[in-house]
Design a protein around this nucleic acid. Structure first.
Lengths: 340, 340
DNA sequence: TGAAATAATGTAAACGGTTACAGTAACCGT
DNA sequence: ACGGTTACTGTAACCGTTTACATTATTTCA
């Protein structure tokens, strides 16, 4: 007994059942017929020995990991919980495992992405957690990738699933203008280079333009889709000793909206009486905020599910590219001033 | 060229740099000295070839995966976002990857746990995602495990990190009794067999007892720490045509509290004027609910961090067992009736 | 009825790393 | 000057699977 490991291997099973390892392997993977007697014997032996195939050995030999990766920019936002949940459901359904990691330009000090062909069979890539070059490199290796909340760079035909940002933002801002007579609407920009940011700003601008309100760069702050950043930004803005120069805020997302409401309240403003606030995403708890948040419902869990399903499609060599754009819907609650 | 794979291997690097594979391996792992010239040459070659070590091959040879697993019961609750976040931070800091999965009695139809010695170096096990027997088996294999929100079964000296439930629950319920004169306090029980449930109920009972209020089984409903379940349960309770027989609700956790507030509101009760509601966990958004939720602050992100750190301690053979009990703190806001 | 297909199994070579063992050369202390 | 370290490197076995190739027995069918 010179074995280093205490774990039972396929050879133990083979010996115990009086067959070759190849037969055991084939039975486990159901990829070649095995006689009923042998099958029965194997079932018994494997149960007795509590045999569990060693993943790494399998991966090495078969060149498949049965793991898919989810690469995020961060996870300190309730936005990611449903995304993860949706993804995990599908991954589990397919008998795969899910590796999650964060990666971003900041961490990118010559450190390669933590997830890739070396440890996964395919990747779900959120927003700009990978650069265009990273994506191009992976695609060149024919590595399965589906993009989430981001469309493929030019000439890279990667599947993508994201949500409709622009028209919903347009409608939301329009609601502020038309229903509530707002004219000086602050906008909290999300992370630069992130598509959601871009399209939400585009929708914001187009709504202003459609109603003859000039765009004013002074009315855009850095929100980063983060509660604390938004809070700070607004606090600084208000602390400038300036007169109130705005009557509403489109916070970019719900998380930032929380920060905004907080900052406003701390500075003595009432929401929505003095200042209307709207967000984007419709987090699980946004309906229960004080005041209930007017926002845009984004089907985040579905995004995770669909993206994962498309990834598994890719893994089965079903070539499916093109972008899936999930519809969003504006949700009128109280923070805009409605009594809904 | 008969190679099946297109990927660059350690042998390519070795040949290109004119050294043996052993030297390359040693340099990569920094576990033996390598001459400066060779080091430099290797750096260059590895960059040129874009060499990334194949994880599975490494795992197989070294018998370490550099992956830790986080096993949850589910993830459709905002409670898990900070837990995951905390865990991921530490895991990343140590250069490991994080595999997440859900597993529960329901899924346990003779399906073995998705995470274990075959694909991870250690496991973070939340609540009752594994049974006592599962844990015993793994511990017998000397597999590193740290428990989260659960203490080790008798005679299994597993490290554990959880939060103080009982005394905080006691204080919270006491607050309802003493400060607000509540006497008929509904309790929404969490998942049975889950320790948080048990201790929160214990705290609830001890507070009642301490103030001479008899425990009434009719006042406990199934909440499951889930918003929808709590909503349904309370709705059914209210719909029984019975007279209002309670004046406050301890919802078990914040997620259930949302459901409770919602059900109450839908049935024409005002919170907190008619019925006081308190939760547990202090989710990221609980302060911003309407009304702001009186609850207990649980340092969930810290739980994730500390549990992960302890797991890495185990991986370094630092034997650390015993349970880490993180302090909690009651947070008085408005939903109990205070004006705070 | 004989050739060809099919079923069931075995042997052994990968897969891409790590590491035990071994060896050489330079260095150190006495 | 010589045994003992130390620094660096190489060879090849091994980790636990999958799978190409081979083999034998059994069907199928013209």
């Amino acid at each position: 007994m010179t074995r280093r490991s205490s774990s039972v291997t396929i050879r133990d099973v083979a010996k115990q059942a009086g067959v070759s390892v190849a037969t055991v392997s084939r039975y486990i993977n159901r990829n070649a017929p095995v006689s009923p007697e042998v099958a029965e014997r194997l079932d018994k032996v494997m149960a007795e020995l509590k045999y569990i195939p060693h993943a790494a050995a399998r991966h090495l030999a078969s060149r498949k990991t049965r793991v898919v990766g989810l690469l995020l920019t961060n996870m300190h936002n309730d936005f990611f919980a449903p995304l993860l949940n949706g993804t995990e459901q599908i991954v589990r359904k397919h008998g795969y495992n899910l590796l999650v990691a964060t990666y971003h330009s900041d961490s990118r000090d010559s450190v390669p992405p933590p997830l890739g062909p070396h440890n996964t069979d395919g990747l779900l890539v959120f927003a700009d957690s990978l650069t265009d070059e990273d994506l191009a490199k992976l695609h060149e290796l024919r590595f399965p990738i589906v993009l989430i909340h981001r469309t493929p760079p030019a000439s890279l035909p990667l599947p993508s699933v994201t949500v409709e940002n622009k028209s919903a933002s347009h409608k939301l801002v329009e609601h502020l203008i038309v229903q509530h007579g707002k004219k000086r609407i602050l906008f909290l920009r999300g992370p630069i280079h992130q598509e959601d940011s871009y399209w939400r700003e585009t929708g914001y601008r187009s709504a202003l333009e459609a109603h003859g309100i000039p765009f004013d760069e002074d009315l855009v702050l850095i929100g980063e889709f983060e509660r604390d950043v938004a809070y700070q930004a607004l606090n600084r803005f208000l602390g400038n000793g300036r007169q109130v120069a705005f009557d509403a805020v489109f916070a970019g997302d719900d998380d930032a909206a929380i920060g905004v409401i907080n900052a406003l309240t701390d500075n003595g403003y009432r929401v929505p009486d003095d200042i209307a606030v709207v967000g984007f995403d419709d987090l699980r708890l946004s309906a229960f905020l004080s005041p209930p948040l007017t926002t845009v419902h984004a089907p985040t869990e579905a995004v995770g599910q669909i993206a994962a399903e498309r990834l598994f499609g890719l893994l089965k060599n079903e070539i499916s590219n093109g972008i899936t754009l999930l519809p969003t819907e504006i949700i009128i609650r109280r923070s805009c001033g409605c009594q809904a």
